[in-house]
Design a protein around this nucleic acid. Structure first.
Length: 261
DNA sequence: AGTACCACCTGACGGC
DNA sequence: TGCCGTCAGGTGGTAC
């Protein structure tokens, strides 16, 4: 699930549960989620430290350690955070377990382990190294238009390209395009200023709405495609059939009537 | 530069 | 019940 809104909600959850807590123990249950750091180095970097602040860039989460460095969490396709008190509450697939001096635990849970965990010394350097574009929610319209106009190919590919702008993945790209009435395979070169304005407005609206709803899709507006991501379902706007196709080898849902090619 | 694959992983689901 | 193929909200590498 984790795209920008999900990670932002994880960040808020982290702040509400784990901020200003001191880490007393770190248990790496499966070292394969560690990026390029040994379990020993990882444990030593965190044990005794306090989480002083948190931030996010696109789909990447950073917990700021009081030592001046940062815990990086990337959630892949199946990652999440869980704060709990008793060991029998520990979720399946907990890959890293942090224990605080109040006795509670924070689990980095990730079934498929496609994410990664690390300790880094600089967020800016990390963003640079990963070639991440600006965070999608930090863009002005002018920046957004400038980025898009530098890009060719299919629009959905552009929205999913983390080096152009960071944060949108498969689901929210589909949602922005649906809300904008633009076909996911539309070529960037065919878009005009009107469409740039629509896309920018809808992108901000969709991301902020998802965060406001705490990414609980039952709370999303009824006219959101995300509630109708099903081949059997119908378009909440026109009642036509939702179609499923592949765009850059990712499942893509759209309404052929509302989003003409 | 853009696209199309493959790979990394685990688990759920449907068909036989 | 079990086996098999397919699919799943991410990313990185490679080859055309």
């Amino acid at each position: 699930m984790p795209e920008l809104p999900d990670v932002e909600v994880f960040r808020q959850y982290f702040d509400a549960t784990s901020l200003h807590q001191r880490v007393t123990a770190v248990d790496t249950r499966d070292a394969r989620v560690l990026e390029d750091i040994t379990p020993e180095t990882f444990r030593e970097a965190l044990t005794g430290r306090e989480f002083a602040a948190s931030s996010r860039h696109g789909k990447n989460f950073f917990a700021h350690l009081d030592a001046g460095n940062f815990l990086l969490l990337h959630f892949g396709m199946t990652g999440e955070l869980k704060y709990f008190e008793h060991p029998d509450q520990e979720p399946d697939h907990t890959r890293v377990l942090f224990t605080f001096d109040n006795g509670w635990h924070l689990g980095y849970v990730n079934m498929r382990m496609l994410g990664k965990v690390n300790v880094i010394s600089s967020i800016d350097e990390y963003v640079e190294k990963q070639s991440l574009g600006p965070d999608a929610l930090q863009l002005s319209y002018d920046q957004f238009a400038g980025l898009l106009s530098s890009k060719r190919g299919m629009i959905k590919s552009a929205f999913m390209d983390q080096s152009l702008m960071a944060g949108l993945g498969n689901i929210y790209s589909d949602e922005v395009l649906y809300q904008s009435g633009i076909h996911p395979k539309r070529q960037m070169t065919g878009l005009g200023e009107d469409q740039y304005h629509t896309l920018y407005k809808k992108m901000c609206e969709v991301l902020n709405t998802a965060i406001d709803c705490q990414v609980d899709t039952t709370e999303f507006p009824e006219n959101y495609l995300i509630k109708h991501r099903d081949q059997e379902d119908t378009c909440p706007r026109c009642g036509g059939d939702i179609r499923k196709i592949k765009v850059s080898s990712r499942s893509t849902y759209f309404c052929p009537d509302c989003q003409p090619e």
